[in-house]
Design a protein around this nucleic acid. Sequence first.
DNA 1: GAGTGGTCTAGACCACTGA
DNA 2: CAGTGGTCTAGACCACTCC
Lengths: 247, 247
Amino acid sequence: MNATARYREIADVLRNEINSEVWGVGDKLPAEPELIARFSASRTTIRQALAELRDAGLVHMRHGVGVFVSPPRVVKRLDSRDRLSRARRQRNEGAFLAEAANQGFTPSSSVRVWFEPAQDLAKLFGIGEADELTVRDRVMRADGHPVMLAVSRLPREITRGTVLEEVDTGPGGTLARLEELGFDLASHEEIVGARMPDANEKQLLDLGSGPVLTVQRRTYSGDRVIEVNDMVMSGAGYELRYAWDAD
Amino acid sequence: MNATARYREIADVLRNEINSEVWGVGDKLPAEPELIARFSASRTTIRQALAELRDAGLVHMRHGVGVFVSPPRVVKRLDSRDRLSRARRQRNEGAFLAEAANQGFTPSSSVRVWFEPAQDLAKLFGIGEADELTVRDRVMRADGHPVMLAVSRLPREITRGTVLEEVDTGPGGTLARLEELGFDLASHEEIVGARMPDANEKQLLDLGSGPVLTVQRRTYSGDRVIEVNDMVMSGAGYELRYAWDAD
DNA sequence: GAGTGGTCTAGACCACTGA
DNA sequence: CAGTGGTCTAGACCACTCC
């Protein structure tokens, strides 16, 4: 943690050049051999400096192509209370569509559906470990760019024979269908964390290698959990907003 | 991004050993020379594997001492509605104390207080840019280990001549004092993000190099913002929980 | 094929910690 | 002091992208 480590000095120089737009957004930085010559440092040291900038979200590497200046934080601010409201659903807007409408991007998504035993989630759902869950694995895109991964799980006993086992759940999304099936949605709970992405997430979300925000949403009908939705989104690209009345 | 990169294999082996508690929480991993011998890999490769585990929050390094297994997510933050409730305050529990009581760690904190012009925050508070804010900069510790940085800002016109300009605000914390001063707390808003820590945060929070969670809480009295609290906590060490009634 | 970043080696010296 | 992790070098081969 030496304050004057060579790789930190180099990182600082490059950081300043990026901030003062010597290299603009999308520009390709000089290739490693050039940087080695310019700073008279070994390749390892240069790469350590670049890794620091990458971790800070300033640049991203493309294998066989080059190192590029990343766009600054594009903040999509999500307000969970609003986006999950019945009013939105009755306007046929799923949560993601609601954001799109609010923020002027064109949404799209792809879905895979499968079934698996509940295992660790059995207790949460109050079912047996061998009982099946319906899994809906979605990739959400904004203007074609993947911005969120969302894996939703529901007890199969709820979804069997319904459109919830199809790729397209129709207007208003999963929550609207659950209400039509007679479930009175009581409350939502979201558990938020931050971690580094795994290789798969890194690729899918086209992350530099900044962190991801993780959200597990649990939807309750009465005291019973009827849906668990695990979401992963870019830390650099997203902000979450929660609001509530005092007491 | 080779799926079978040597350093990833090594990281996986160690990860499994940690998860199956071959090495328990707090244990020192074998020193680098031992790992080099065991895996027949170069020091660089071993260190790359260890860096991966560090980024995942599984281990942390102590210069001159060793590599240690990190505790799992320590602080599960209470549902924000509850932890800021009047009921808690009336039991003399500030938000952080409430968590400590719930989770059995011994809380402590240190505070610095100063004053500064509102500048960028002027608009949010609805005051002039040159008007002063009272800044309360706190480090929260669990069993002596720093787990959260919190910088709270209030218009000085509110705090002048009150205990809010002292180091110790007394039982129930800042919010309790604001109510006593006649402010009717209306609502709270929290904006959550994730990013990489800067050097200072890395040191203070003793982070490997995993990400941090950031939370900006805005407390409203009527339509007016009376406190802005910027919190930074370890992504590996914290989970945030929000709950609300459906519609 | 030429040029890029990704991984790896074998060695060196330094800075920090604790006995 | 011995042992630890932190930084750095000079070189090698591989995998990917684009022409």
